[in-house]
């Protein structure tokens, strides 16, 4: 039975549906800044090499900096186990059926750590090029990864996540020739949704471009006035 309505009214709201997440992300960003933590949110499809690259980056950064990683995965803890070898603090967020990380999951996971002791926090998002784009996690920088094996036009298929990112990283660049990766076409594909975006080319296996990426992060961190070690 449907109820009749007397005097129908319209109530204007104009409210961001993800306001709750965004407000919490803003609080997190403030906490990170106060504690001198530089936060990187890594997004990509499954299998693009996020964990391999991150293991390498954490291992190198851990010589001079205190590093931590939050790893989102649907089911397993395999990624966390791989990352722990780097010497970084690692915590796995198992999302179950949720295809992305939300600010509230980050907040809950931070409880076990003293933020003042951390210089760099890497958030490895769930492997997915759609859903993570809408969720601000309080990060300083969002990096979207594409591997050479995924094809040069992949960024065009996911304009929302490319547009939401600050930098792009091409992984497995050592395989570029083998898979006839058209680099120019890839850059063009990125620029379609994010003109002038900074793009790094790396290979974790062959040690290419990793130091350049790390130097960039250190420079960005220092620009923000976080606590410097030197």
């Amino acid at each position: 039975m449907s109820q009749a309505i007397k005097q129908p009214r319209i109530v204007k709201i104009r409210e961001n549906v993800l306001k709750k997440n965004d407000m919490l992300a803003r609080e997190l960003r403030k906490r990170f800044q106060e504690n001198g933590v530089y936060v990187v949110n890594l997004v990509s499809s499954p299998g693009s090499g996020k964990t391999t690259l991150l293991t390498e980056v954490l291992t190198r950064l851990s010589n001079k900096y205190k590093t931590a990683a939050l790893v989102g995965d649907l089911a397993t803890e395999n990624d966390a186990e791989r990352l722990e070898k780097s010497g970084a603090l690692v915590h796995q967020i198992t999302t179950g059926t949720v295809c992305h990380l939300e600010a509230q999951m980050i907040e809950a996971s931070l409880k076990q750590w003293n933020l003042a002791e951390i210089d760099f926090l890497f958030i490895e998002n769930v492997g997915n090029l759609v859903c993570p784009s809408s969720y601000d996690l309080g990060e300083n920088i969002r990096a979207v990864l594409f591997s050479t094996t995924e094809g040069e036009d992949k960024p065009e298929k996911y304009p929302t996540i490319v547009n939401s990112a600050d930098v792009a990283i091409i992984t497995k660049i050592d395989l570029a020739d083998a898979v006839e990766f058209d680099k120019e076409r890839f850059y063009e594909s990125i620029y379609k949704s994010r003109p002038e975006m900074k793009i790094f080319e790396v290979s974790a296996k062959k040690d290419e471009g990793i130091d350049e990426w790390i130097d960039f992060l250190i420079k960005e961190k220092n620009l923000l006035g976080g606590q410097s070690i030197n």
Binding site: R9, K12, V17
Partner: peptide
């Protein structure tokens, strides 16, 4: 880029 709840239509039940 918005995901916005713009307005509600409704009223009091008769």
């Amino acid at each position: 880029k918005e995901i916005e709840l713009y307005s509600l239509e409704g009223g009091d039940v008769l």
